[in-house]
Structure formats: structure tokens, C-alpha cells
Amino acid sequence: MYTDFFGLSAKPFELLPNPKFIYLSKGHRKALSYLQYGVQERAGFTLLTGEVGSGKTTLIRDIVNKNCADATLAMIFNTRIDPRQLIAMVNEEFGLDAEGKDKPQLLRELNDFLIDEGSTGRQPIIIIDEAQNLSAEALEEVRLLSNLEADNFKLVQIILVGQPELKQLISQPELRQLRQRISLCCHLEPLSREETEEYILHRLATVGRRDCVTFMDGTMDLIFDFSGGIPRLINVICDFLLLSAFVEETFQISLDLVSEAVKELSFEEPESSPADESLTQASKDERLLQIEQKYDKLHVSRSEKESILERLESQGNILKYLINQQQKQFNHSEERLAEISAQIDYLRQEIQDECKSSATHEKLLLGNGKPGFL
């Protein structure tokens, strides 16, 4: 609803991983270069890790959109599965029927499919997001898939995407063979204070203009302190700020507005920040989840109010229309009444004229000595 108020073509801070909004910080640019190289050179295994909400999925979608015209993709997002289910999901993503088949049959059909794709010049790519949730057995099954290769190139390229604990998982002794297969590895760091500001302005410019609102002195510092440079948290607070500015009908983001937003989205804790290194990764993830859930509730509440306002505005417009219609009908009735009154006056005048004419004729007859008729 606030997009029209700020002159924007869309909401700039949606939580969806939309490549349209991709912002290449120093770390993101490096990761993107690694991923592009891996795809173009068919590097086999590529590993991408980063904190929750750091932009991993957005990078992957950008790579898919720009570099995979000749690729056949299998994208796996549900990773709390066993090895057989993993192979079945890969086959289904490649368009193969997996229902009712055991693992050896699934692997045979997958191997045949990959050979056929390679013979036609297409590049099969398996992208596994949230890979930190895979069991060691499932990861070993992924390694075995990489054994499928032709004489001079890999039949399939595998990109593992996950949170930092994925590195810890792969470092286990039983997965040393998988670790040795990874040819490219990159990690996404949170944005710096300067990158956070440029990220915000970049997303505003993508859907309109970067100066549609003015961030007062100190506001960017508060946003960075709250978000810790994590893009998803930056989106959460900035969307909240634009909605709050719209409600207050202002084009300035003040310190008070940001402080209020931080208070709404945060929780009562000792002096700390989401970027505090003393927090464990699990507590960081839990905090991010809680903030997103609270934001969703607040967003729904505000959306309900906006919906009620829209319905009231719509009803008001309908009433205005009905009143205008009634006014038009009333005006038409007045015009018709005036026409009828004019006709009555005309007929009355005609009758009066006829009466005068008859009276004159009678007098003439009487004057000539002829009897008149009453």
C-alpha cells in the first residue's frame, strides 16, 4: 500500500530471494565469481556457506537465471530426508518417475539420464540448499553421484549451499572423501556498515529512486546495529520503517522512527546485538526466527488495518457514486417536472385562448340578432 505514497513500482524490501534486487558487496561479488566459474568450467563440487539470511539463495537464483541456458537443473530445498529419498527427489527434479522404485533402480535411471544429457551438450546441475540438514549418509550418497563422469568431464555438477555448520559437518572424518571432492568453496560474510547503507539505497533505486525517503543522521547506524549486516534483517526493519513512515505521512526516516521499529522487532535482553560474537550460532538462528515471526505478526496486523481502510474507502466511493446517481436522477426529475409544468402552462394558455375566442364569437352572433348557444 505504501508503494504509491513513495512513488515505487514494488515493495523494495520483500523477504523473497529475488535476483532482481541482488546487491554485490565485496563478499557477494567474490562468491558470485566462484559460482560462475564453477558452472562454466563444470568444476564438480562447489560449496557455498553463509549465515542465515545472508543472501545465499539469491545468489544461486541469479546464477541459475544468467548462466544456465544450456543446463538441466535439479533444485533440492527439503533436506531432512534419507539417502533414498534424496535420490528420488533428484530424479523427480530431472523429470524422471521415481515412484515405487528402490535406490539401485533410481541410480541406474539417473546415470542413463545424465549420459543422455551429456551426449546432447546439456549440463546437468544439482543444487542442494539448506545442505547442513543432510545426514552424513545422505552427503556420502551425494559424493557417490559425483563419481558419474565421462572420459573428459563430469556428467553432473553439484552445488551444496548451507549455513556455517555445513563446513563442520563436512569436516567429519567419515566424510573426508567428500571434502576432497570440493574444488571451490566460498563463504558469505555479513555486510559492513557502509555496504548496509548502499544495500538499502540500491534496493530503493531498483523499484523507483534512492531518494524517495531521507534517512536522518544516525539512522543507518541504528539499522546496522540491529541487523548486524544480515540482508534479511535489513529487509525486515526497512520494510517496517517504510510502512511506519507511510502511516505518519512523512518522507523522513528519523532516529525516533528507527528506535521505535527496533523496539517493536526486538526482545528484552541484556545489552547485546544480533551480531554479538558471544552468541552461539543456534541462538542467532533462533533470534532471527523470532524476529521474523514477530515481524510477520505485526505485518499481518497492519495489513488487516490497511485492508479495513481500503474496504471503508471502497464503500465510501460506492456511496458517493450512489449519491451522484441519485442527484442525477433528481436533476432529471426536476427537468422533467419543469417540462411538464411548461406543458401544463401551454395547455392552460390554449384553453384560455379558446375560451376567449368562443366568447368573442358568441357576441358577434348576438350582435347580428341570431340566437346564441349557451
Rank of each mutant, 00 (worst) to 15 (best):
S301M: 09
E269G: 03
F45H: 01
V161C: 08
A245P: 01
Y346A: 15
I340Q: 01
E264G: 07
A31K: 00
N368Q: 12
I159Q: 08
V90K: 00
L312V: 15
E269M: 05
L178V: 05
Y346P: 08
D296W: 02
G208S: 14
I22W: 07
Q157M: 06
L184R: 11
Q132W: 07
D129L: 11
S254C: 01
S254T: 15
E350H: 12
P270N: 07
F330R: 13
G7W: 04
C186W: 02
Y199P: 02
P124Y: 08
H332A: 15
L8W: 12
G208N: 12
H187I: 04
R232P: 02
I200M: 02
D285L: 09
S227P: 03
A43Q: 10
E268W: 00
L96W: 06
I237F: 05
R348G: 13
A136C: 07
E334K: 14
I234F: 09
S272W: 01
I60M: 05
E195R: 05
L8Q: 13
A74W: 06
I200H: 10
F226R: 08
L243I: 04
K305C: 03
L47R: 04
I340M: 02
A71G: 06
Q252E: 06
E339I: 15
G55V: 03
L148S: 03
L155E: 01
K103N: 06
V90Q: 02
P164H: 03
L288R: 07
K103A: 13
Q343A: 15
E277C: 02
S266I: 00
L86T: 07
F240S: 10
L366F: 11
L8V: 14
G38A: 13
R122T: 05
L148A: 08
A205C: 08
F251S: 10
I340N: 00
I234V: 13
L144F: 07
M1S: 06
L364S: 14
N152Y: 12
P173N: 02
S341D: 15
F330L: 15
G369F: 10
E92A: 14
E313C: 08
Q349L: 10
S244A: 13
F240R: 04
Q327D: 13
R80H: 07
L16G: 14
Q325Y: 07
N111D: 11
G218W: 00
E249K: 13
I223G: 13
A131T: 06
F113Y: 12
G228C: 12
T120K: 15
G218F: 05
T79W: 11
Q168C: 03
L184E: 11
S358V: 14
V39D: 12
E362N: 04
V207A: 09
M75K: 08
Q40M: 13
N317V: 11
E304Q: 07
L35F: 15
G38I: 02
F153H: 13
R61A: 05
S341H: 04
C68I: 00
I158A: 04
